[in-house]
Design a binder for these strands. Structure first.
Lengths: 364, 364
DNA sequence: CCGGGTTGAGCAAACGTTTACGTGCCCATC
DNA sequence: GATGGGCACGTAAACGTTTGCTCAACCCGG
């Protein structure tokens, strides 16, 4: 307490309604302020701020005293006030089509874990369907609420892309790419090549693809590339690809089963199926079983993802390391917010995991 | 700049660094302020605030003009400032053990959807394991950041419960109950009764339970009640229950498989299994198949949840209406924040869905 | 013409921090 | 014994809204 005409430099009127701070937790109800802590410690608000944030310019003794008092009052800073003053929110929005689908929930889980470590809060936005998406990009509900937005495998129309600039936050893409946004993904062409290459190696020549559609006409990079990888790999091996071998079904738990049905009813059945995701593949396996078709003897199945179920069902799959993608994306976000100039584009490896649902075909 | 001596009441110095607002989006970079809008409209900040929030006291013409200008500048309020002033955050924390497990992700999805409708943002916290939980309750990282906290099926120690009061926000529980917190759940005793009752009706007498443990010693109400329901129903029917028939395995995708293994190796096998969740049940079915035990002929299986996989695998289950629980919880939160006095405790119905994995036992 | 009610709008004080600047004070240095 | 440089801390101006007051103008019936 250096200068000050009297002892009490901070007259009570400045202390937001504190008249006689009771012994307990400041005034009833409302949580303690910095002002309360400052008053008790007999220092200025500025000093409290510095002390609590480990900034220099505060004596060790004062610092300890302030700490103790803050603790006693169980004081925490008001994030609103703090962020208003420092112009950043400490929040990141994670945008997914829906939170209850494994791929997205796994991404969300990984992102949250890593971002939390960095002291950032995670806001979830579910944006599903074309209309929800267009409203999202029209209103940009996350504007000014977050420091960064992570779009998880979200297809975006060209005109919507333009509005990204208005977001007023770093935009990062996970599990695909979009415009010139920094992103983290796997090489989906390679994913398909791994899966189909494995089937070719086993001797398959009649290989089908089962995928789900967004039913919305927007092309998502991962989708496009995976299909292209499928076609390219077959073409490179000189395999014919009848159009009926590419089956698209609306997203849902039955998609894989329906896809298999279509394939089994074909005059010339494929001997192997490349399923777009493990969930699809598991559903496919189940339907095969129901129809008495033995996998892998009569039909091989390979999925994509690295879903826990794949292990359970002994499913051959291309693991795209969702957890790694999530962590890497989170790190990208953190680096951008710190003002670093991180690698703007990371392509993580995918890995073929051979299990029991693929084998050589019965007939050559 | 107190009382305006001239026409320009809001002199530029108050307009945060605006010297000559260019035609475009206010000053470069930084988003537009209310002050910018006010200046352009030639009105006071207060009027802008009222106009944009549909508060009375603004002429229709002025209101329209302000709206147009705000639109043109693509202005959005700063949530920090707004919330600092009105003392509420407009945010709700959803706390789950982990986001990548179906039950929690489905809850999260349902909560987000409904809360978003109400204009609330959703912050996710993953709090898994006993140490993470104790830190969570020690630091209460969500303090002052949210208006309400939704704990989703989260076991809490007695001493941790005490700290809930410090949260400084409404605390609501989904999928269970806790202290005197308002909550939404199903009757888990009834859930077990439905499942086991169904098996008894089919003629089973040797019925086992497979559950997962949190490995942490904390008892979660739903767990306790489900186990009790299981025991009570069997007891009421005069069924013996050897202790080996209650199998607990650590959480994970293998839990169901491991549980089944233990049961199959018993000298006297049960004829039916009540699985704690559909994921467990599906894993159990798979292991039965691998070991050549036919379900339901040699062993009936019933799960709990209403997981999409249950339909796919034709699994008999007790649907606990996760979506309904989520929605109902969200509505409870909204009502509490509005200051209503809603029903503090809602018990939603659960429903037995009979499918193909349960049948009469082979031997009486 | 007058008084009272209504309406539209501005003033300024919060809200609770952060931070660029000051300002004494102590101590080492020449 | 000045000089000057840290150090510890205080001052006050942001940060961008919300909201209780105040006030002028206008309308209308009497």
């Amino acid at each position: 307490m250096v200068k000050g005409s009297g002892a009490n430099v901070y007259d009570l009127s400045s202390l937001t309604r504190v008249s006689t701070p009771p012994e307990g937790l400041s005034r009833e109800g409302t949580p303690a302020n910095m002002a309360d802590v400052a008053a008790r410690a007999g220092v200025s608000i500025a000093t409290v701020s510095r002390a609590l944030r480990d900034l220099p310019g505060v004596g060790q003794e004062t610092r300890d005293r302030i700490r103790a008092i803050a603790d006693e009052l169980s004081y925490v800073v008001s994030p609103e006030a703090s962020r208003l003053a420092r112009r950043e929110t400490g929040r990141v929005a994670v945008v997914v089509p829906r939170a209850d689908v494994w791929f997205y929930s796994a991404m969300l889980a990984g992102l949250e874990a890593r971002l939390r470590q960095a002291g950032l809060d995670v806001l979830v936005y579910q944006v599903d369907g074309v209309t929800a998406r267009s409203t999202f990009f029209r209103d940009l509900p996350s504007r000014r609420k977050v420091d960064a937005v992570v779009l998880v495998a979200m297809p975006v129309l060209a005109e919507e892309e333009k509005r990204l600039d208005l977001m007023g936050a770093e935009v990062v893409v996970a599990g695909g790419r979009l415009r010139d946004c920094p992103h983290v993904r796997v090489d989906d062409h390679e994913v398909a090549r791994l899966a189909v290459g494995h089937l070719l190696d086993l001797g398959h020549r009649r290989i089908a693809l089962v995928r789900t559609s967004d039913t919305e006409g927007t092309r998502w990079s991962a989708d496009v590339e995976r299909v292209r990888g499928f076609r390219d790999t077959l073409a490179a091996a000189g395999c014919p690809l009848p159009e009926e071998y590419v089956v698209t079904r609306p997203f849902g738990v039955r998609a894989g089963a329906d896809g298999v049905d279509a394939l089994l009813d074909l005059p010339e059945r494929p001997t192997a199926v490349f399923a777009y995701s493990d969930e699809l593949a598991v559903a496919a396996l189940q339907r095969l079983r129901e129809r008495g078709v033995d996998a892998p003897r009569e039909m091989s199945v390979v999925g994509v993802d690295g879903h826990p179920l794949a292990e359970l069902f002994d499913l051959t799959t291309v693991d795209q390391g969702v957890a790694a993608q999530a962590t890497s994306t989170a790190e990208l976000v953190v680096a951008l917010l710190r003002g670093d100039r991180p690698e703007r584009s990371t392509v993580l490896p995918s890995r073929l995991v051979v299990r029991g649902t693929t084998a050589a075909p019965l007939d050559g």
